[in-house]
């Protein structure tokens, strides 16, 4: 596995975490839990954005593995 595909895998996992947190925050009846889920979802979004840039950068560096 190239570095690019590893980072890509991590990126998609982060995306899936973000979506799961979104589902949980919508499902829960508790205000406190909802806030915690939403807060974590925001953090995941920031990480996701950073990783996305990294994925783009890596695919430029390793064009042969695209």
């Amino acid at each position: 596995m190239t570095v690019g595909s590893q980072v890509k895998g991590c990126y998609s996992s982060i995306k899936s975490i973000e979506a799961s947190l979104g589902i949980l925050s919508n499902k829960t009846q508790n205000v406190e839990s909802k806030q915690a889920f939403e807060h974590t979802e925001q953090l995941m979004k920031q990480i996701k954005n950073d990783l996305q840039k990294q994925v783009v950068m890596l695919s430029k560096q390793e064009p042969q593995y695209k």
Binding site: V3, Q6, V7, C10, L21, A36, F37, H39, T40, L43, M44, Q46, I47, D50, L51, Q54, M57
Partner: peptide, 28 residues
């Protein structure tokens, strides 16, 4: 990733996000 990369910019980015994710795990 942070350990294996040699690009200082990427290293910093991985470390920062790793910490952020650790915080997220702790709170959630």
């Amino acid at each position: 990733f942070a350990l294996s990369t040699e690009n200082p910019e990427s290293k910093e980015m991985y470390q920062r996000n790793g910490k952020k994710l650790q915080n997220a795990i702790d709170t959630i």
